[in-house]
């Protein structure tokens, strides 16, 4: 099985993720995949949920906090600016309060709360999470490629969806019960129709957003999750651990991609000692990878003679991943 075939045979898998330890090339793969899909004529968006994102550096263009930027026709890239998102969100809330109550200025007590809330440790993650919901619910693209943060955080992000979902469910239930009591009282006192509970409506909307996002992440039909690794012992140990964790969250793994494989033909040439050693070491771990993951290994990507930045290198990476431009 090859990477290109996975895409061809599963055209309904439109949400693409690369997971793995930091620094193995996930962002590069995300960018190259978006590039390849765009070449195939699909509208593809690659977006980063990492506050220390590298898409700008890979595309050599500052896209941070600028929304979806079209890099070449059909290829869009986006880096979420969480701080800005939080500021805009706070302003929306303030505006809404002023409008609803015809106030010139938000009361101090409420303003304090809005500011303190923004300083909460979980705020940044929540803001990014919410922006991702906006992006995927928007439905403007054929493919969504998530540039995930390193392992620990990817898991964190996945668990957040389910925690929020449960939280909202409970609050919604409480709110519904409250409404029932209110209606009972209204009926008993023969009052006119009650005002509709706007909070309940708001909660239901929040719930819709969260469940849409979390269902995508764990949907075998719609989502392809690829694990990235390199032929080194420590990475291998971590990958085994991580694969288990992901399985726990029921993230369907579509396969493994091995990165930074030293070109085997080098071995025949006259090469420095360090390189011969490294090739030798890699061989051992490549065999181990094959033994562990067998036909789930979809591609071996060679180490290039330089790092992957700029469209020319991205194109070369895409060819290495998906085969030559047919």
């Amino acid at each position: 099985m090859s990477l290109a075939r996975i895409f061809q045979e599963n055209p309904e898998r439109r949400y693409i993720m690369f997971g793995g330890k930091g620094g193995l090339g996930k962002t590069t793969f995300s960018a190259a995949t978006a590039y390849w899909l765009a070449q195939q004529g699909y509208r593809a968006l690659v977006f980063s949920v990492d506050p220390q994102a590298s898409l700008s550096d890979i595309f050599q263009q500052d896209i941070f906090g600028k929304g979806a930027v079209e890099i070449i026709p059909n290829l869009f890239a986006q880096e979420i600016d969480a701080d800005r998102r939080i500021r805009e969100y706070q302003d929306e809330i303030r505006q809404k309060i002023r409008d609803m109550y015809g106030l010139e200025k938000v009361p101090d007590e409420i303003e304090d709360y809005i500011q303190a809330a923004a300083a909460e440790p979980a705020m940044e993650e929540s803001a990014i999470f919410d922006q991702v919901v906006d992006i995927v619910v928007g439905g403007e693209y054929d493919y969504y490629i998530y540039d995930l943060v390193p392992l620990g955080h990817a898991l964190y992000y996945l668990s957040m969806a389910s925690v929020y979902d449960q939280w909202i469910q409970k609050i919604t239930k409480l709110r519904e019960e409250m409404e029932e009591y209110a209606q009972v009282a209204a009926l008993l006192q023969r009052e006119d129709e009650m005002e509709e509970d706007k909070i309940l409506a708001e909660l239901q909307d929040i719930r819709y957003r969260i469940s849409t996002s979390s269902s995508i992440l764990t949907d075998r039909e719609k989502t392809a999750f690829f694990f990235v690794l390199v032929p080194e012992e420590m990475v291998l140990v971590d990958t085994k651990k991580a694969a288990g964790l992901f399985a726990k969250f029921q993230v369907p793994i579509s396969g493994y991609i091995v990165n930074r494989v030293l070109p085997p033909e080098l071995e025949a040439q006259e090469i420095p000692e360090y390189l011969r050693h490294r090739i030798h070491m890699q061989k051992k771990y490549l065999a181990e990878i094959d033994r562990l993951f067998g036909n789930e290994v979809l591609a071996r990507i060679p180490e290039f003679e330089r790092d992957i930045t700029g469209l020319d290198m991205i194109q070369r990476m895409a060819e290495a991943m998906f085969g030559g431009a047919a």
């Binding site: 809330i93 809404k96 309060i97 979980a122 993650e125 803001a127 919410d130 909202i168 706007k198 909070i199």
Partner: peptide, 14 residues
């Protein structure tokens, strides 16, 4: 709780 979504409810409970 994480206050992100709480903020959305805030206007209604002012």
């Amino acid at each position: 709780l994480p206050p992100y979504y709480s903020l959305r409810l805030l206007p209604y409970v002012v």
